[in-house]
Design a protein around this nucleic acid. Structure first.
Length: 954
RNA sequence: GCGGGUGUGGUGAAAUUGGUAGACACGCUAGACUUAGGAUCUAGUGCCGCGAGGCGUGGGGGUUCGAGUCCCUCCACCCGCACCA
């Protein structure tokens, strides 16, 4: 009987569903194990072969753990709210609810096609009111808590109120947006509106006027991690900085814990580093400069307080609050011009050009608190509004940027550090001896830093401070497809939380859900919803995409609970995610937010664990081959003439297993369909210098079905293709749908092949050629169970020593390799075992039956079929893992490599238990070795039992 | 610029503690069975050399009886961050 994957896979898929083989109970004596995949957002494109890579790996691990006796939670769901889903809906001109549910259905069928062992009874959908009720509920917890930096935990707003009522801001250790200072009497005298504003300064979810990333094309603001290189991560649209009244999450309050707790996680160093860099902790000093003729002070942050005597000017960010107040009339025009210039520059301009030095003088002067010197206050783009305090003391002698600025605007430079004792030290290195620095003179830099901080504290002009690069997360989106905020406003504009029993606040139906321009949310158009019967108003912004994904891993533990986001019993049993598998693209976004939400819920006593994801594995991207095509024509002048055309658009749908073709010149962005522009040619030659002598001709011809119609005949040309490895994307015509592969080879083969491709964490291109090898292997494996006539046949005969050795060797190898997530070598081990057993013509049940269980996590369908053919009535996936018996691994003999001076010259079998002395004696006596020893002295013989023998001669 | 990673046959890759480099596959070559099939089987396949042998894990140097693995240095590519005070 031939192996027919399509028939058996359909059959067992049904069986698993009917028998609820993968259903997990929260009530079990077995130890728990939680294997989680990053859930997908159901985009319209469906899954391509890259998506399942991580799912397959985690599924293998989950199945393995199950066979090893664990109660395994392995769920799946959909991140259905958010920008990608909504953008797709807009493009297709359908309601996002409709397109989302269609896309989910499509994803589900694609996932089912791959034989995953998900417990679908726990499915989560972030756009489902029963789910987002709890997203809103957690948001209210954020709203109703503040962060006590002393106790390092979140505390209820009621306790903050009590503190303010009694002591004002005195000794208030609260994380806040800006330092506030008032007495209890001041507090009591405040209006309701003013009190609300004060509380917003402390709430973990707060509304505030801030500079945000506004994306006009998407019609919404974006969080920092949603902006890459000054463009929106989704869609690549330009982003600008703009002040707006927005909801934010005070994730900065958790910065220290987010950083410290990384230590206990089993994440890759790269991943931990990325988080640590994003948090960006640096220690230094906060200090105040008085302003000449103003009451205000300039607050700055510096990591180099020791350089204060070299501070010859100050620089504020152009958006700094003080700029308007301190600019002198004479400088007003210059400042206005500069601000105009800054406004014309997008984030992208600003980032791509950091060399050009620009700035303007405010006319104001600050006073150096240490020596009373007046120094000019400038504004410049190079000082960022949202790092530190948005203001710096500039020390041109010891900072590259300050130096460039001073040189350009002819500002004084005072040398303050003598680095002559440190040849090769750069300007950034914190070494050298202080000079021209009053009481610091003669000190080493390190010493000077602490001396300056001590002096500052004594004078009351500053203090030691830790600064973080991490910024609070913008939490409002001016979009339709997201969770509505469970917040209503009264006539004064004071925000009130909805009552828990009024949750969920459902997203109202909206016919026109397209984003509005100018920062308005589509929900604002539904005035009958915005204005409530009780006179309050709904918030019209919605929550961002990361809201729902920040806690979904908890919901799976108790997915259908309508009384709590998760029950105490469920979370006490499942605790945290033991293995989380997903892409590195979520390094700083999702993973950071999820950790914060988890820590908040932990602080509030809802969770027993401090961190959500113990171990993290990042699967590498599966790439596609991007092919560029050129038509090559040789002319009589002996040079190559290229004609390049936009071929991809006109070619018929690609046939499976043929490389798709994308025709373009190389450009940084890949998208332009540049024909023969001078720039295109220049880039092409830069990319492929070997063609620098070629002649390029313009191409106005049209192509249909690969044939040139209007210019010349196809015979005149040769196709010339060049390819590179890159993203798998519709844009490059190189997307491969797993369904097509499964249709042809079967799902087991697809799973095995994706694993066989290489190490899970590595990026690798999809190459269809290799899959035949895996397919061949599955057929060989299958054939072990059948006799010459094609009948299922397994012998009851006892296995030989050699056969048992093959089996147990494989058990050991596969076990070890799964534990270290080396799935590619597992597949090799199965292949080796199969080849060896075929050679021995082994068809013994004693060997083959455990092998079926062993391969079950990898090839769930085939193993299930063989398992039932072997006479079992239950599922192989509920079996127990075959036990390793070390006894069978014992070798009687070992083939020793015998090396002369480290070069292997001969090999010889010796009994495994032969003594070192005897091994040495016999090795030296070997004929094949003797000839190497002639005329030489044996100086030393190294014998490592069961490894090798090395003879050192001289 | 900073941080992290990778570099091994024609290709994807293996080598888990310093101990037979290239397992397992793809591809290729030859053959068998058959005779248009994208089927199966057998043998071969790192490079140079007829051979003995030599050379080989990005380059150079070092430690060691022994280095893909450890140390120093240089190069290339990939990823993340980036005017971070």
């Amino acid at each position: 009987m031939d192996y027919r994957p399509r028939d058996i896979e359909k059959k067992w898929q049904k069986y698993w569903e009917q028998e609820e083989v993968y259903k997990v109970s929260n009530d079990s004596d077995r130890p728990k194990f939680y294997v989680l995949d990053m859930f997908p957002y159901p985009s319209g494109a469906g899954l391509h072969v890259g998506h399942p890579l991580g799912y397959i790996a985690s599924d293998i691990f989950a199945r393995y753990k199950r066979l090893k006796g664990f109660n395994v939670l392995h769920p799946m769901g959909y991140d259905a709210f958010g920008l990608p889903a909504e953008q797709y809906a807009i493009q297709m001109g359908v309601h996002p609810a409709k397109s989302t549910s269609e896309n989910i259905a499509r994803y589900r069928s694609q996932l089912d096609n791959l034989g995953f062992s998900f417990d679908w009874s726990r499915e989560v959908n972030t756009s489902n009111p029963a789910y987002y009720k709890w997203t809103q509920w957690i948001f209210l917890k954020l709203f109703e808590h503040w962060y006590d930096a002393e106790q390092q935990k979140a505390r209820p707003i009621s306790e903050l109120l009590a503190h303010l009522e009694a002591k004002g801001t005195d000794a208030l250790p609260a994380a806040c947006s800006e330092q506030m200072d008032f007495s209890a009497a001041d507090w009591q005298a405040k209006s309701a509106k003013a009190k609300d504003e004060v509380l917003m300064n402390y709430r973990l979810a707060y509304k505030k006027q801030t500079f945000v990333n506004w994306c006009e094309a998407l019609g919404t603001v974006l969080a920092n991690d949603e902006v890459k290189d000054g463009l929106s991560e989704r869609g690549g649209h330009p982003v600008e900085r703009r002040p707006m009244l927005q909801w934010s999450l005070r994730i900065t309050a958790y910065a220290e814990r987010l950083l410290n707790d990384l230590d206990e996680l089993e994440w890759s160093d790269a991943m931990k580093k990325m988080q640590a860099n994003w948090i960006g902790r640096s220690t230094g000093a906060q200090l105040f400069f008085d302003l000449d003729g103003h009451d205000e002070k300039i607050e700055i942050f510096t990591t180099r307080p020791d350089t204060i005597f070299g501070a010859t000017f100050m620089v504020l960010a152009p958006e700094h609050d003080l700029v308007a107040q301190i600019k002198t009339p004479e400088q007003s025009a210059a400042i206005a011009d500069y601000l105009d210039y800054v406004n014309t520059r997008s984030e992208r301009d600003r980032m791509s050009d950091v060399k050009t030095v620009t700035g303007a003088f405010t006319g104001a002067h600050a006073i150096n608190p240490f020596n009373g010197e007046k120094v000019p206050v400038w504004i410049s783009e190079y000082v960022l509004k949202d790092y530190g305090t948005g203001a710096i003391m500039a020390v041109p002698a010891d900072d590259e940027r300050d130096r460039r600025f001073a040189e350009k605007f002819d500002l004084p430079i005072i040398d303050i550090i003598d680095k002559s004792a440190h040849p090769g030290a750069t300007i950034e290195d914190k070494v050298g001896t202080m000079i021209n620095s009053d009481f610091l003179n003669g000190m080493e830099v390190k010493e000077a830093i602490s001396a300056t901080i001590a002096a500052m504290q004594e004078k009351g002009i500053g203090r030691e401070k830790v600064n973080y690069k991490l910024r609070d997360a913008i939490y409002s989106r001016q979009r339709y497809w997201g969770e509505p905020f469970p917040v209503i406003y009264d006539k004064e504009g004071i925000a009130h939380p909805l009552k828990e029993e009024d949750l969920p606040l459902e997203l109202p139906e909206l016919d026109d859900f397209k984003p509005a321009s100018g920062g308005q949310s589509p929900l604002a158009r539904k005035t009958d919803w915005v204005e409530r019967a009780d006179g309050f108003f709904h918030e019209t912004d919605t929550m961002p995409g990361f809201a729902g994904s920040s806690w979904y891993f908890l919901r799976y533990m108790d997915a259908n609970n309508s009384d709590a986001f998760v029950s105490k019993q469920a979370v006490d049993y499942w605790r945290d995610v033991d293995l989380y598998v997903g892409g590195t693209e979520h390094a700083v976004g999702h993973l950071m937010y999820a950790r914060v939400w988890h820590k908040l819920l932990y602080d509030l006593g809802y969770l027993p664990t401090n961190e959500p994801f113990r171990k993290l594995i990042n699967q590498g991207m599966i790439q596609g081959v991007i092919e560029y095509i050129c038509l090559l024509k040789e002319k009589t002048d002996g040079k190559n003439h290229f004609i390049c055309a936009d071929f991809a658009e006109k070619r018929p749908e690609s046939e499976y297993a043929r490389l798709p073709v994308y025709v373009d010149y190389v450009s940084d962005y890949g998208t332009e369909k540049s024909h023969l522009s001078a720039e295109g040619i220049r880039q092409f030659i830069e990319w492929r210098p070997e063609y620098k002598d070629a002649i390029f001709e313009g191409c106005g011809g049209t192509y249909r079905d690969g044939k040139l119609e209007s210019e010349g005949s196809p015979e005149d040309f040769r196709f010339y293709t060049i390819s590179e490895v890159g993203k798998m994307s519709k844009r490059y015509f190189n997307v491969i749908n797993p369904d097509d592969v499964v249709e042809r080879y079967g799902s087991d083969c697809f799973r095995l092949y994706e694993m066989f491709l290489g190490p899970i964490e590595q990026a690798k291109p999809w190459d269809t050629k290799g899959i035949d090898g895996v397919s061949r292997f599955l057929r060989k494996f299958w054939s072990l169970f059948f006799n010459d006539k094609g009948e299922f046949f397994c012998s009851e005969e006892p296995a030989t020593k050699a056969e048992l050795k093959i089996l147990h060797k494989t058990i050991k190898k596969v076990c070890d390799d799964i534990e270290r997530f080396s799935f590619n070598t597992c597949v090799s081990a199965f292949m080796t075992a199969t080849n060896e057993l075929l050679k021995l013509k082994c068809n013994k049940k004693e060997i083959l039956e455990p092998l079926v269980t062993l391969i079950a996590p990898f090839a769930p369908y085939m193993s299930e079929d063989l398992w039932h053919k072997l006479g079992h009535a239950n599922s192989v996936h509920l079996d127990t893992y075959p036990e390793l018996i070390e006894e069978h691994l014992k070798e009687d003999a070992f083939t020793y490599p015998i090396a002369i001076n480290g070069k292997t010259r001969s090999k010889m079998d010796f009994p495994a238990d032969l003594s070192k002395e005897e091994l040495e004696k016999q090795a030296l006596a070997l004929e094949g070795i003797q000839k190497w020893l002639e005329g030489k002295t044996v100086r030393k013989v190294i014998v490592v039992p069961k490894r090798m023998i090395n003879i050192v001669v001289g």
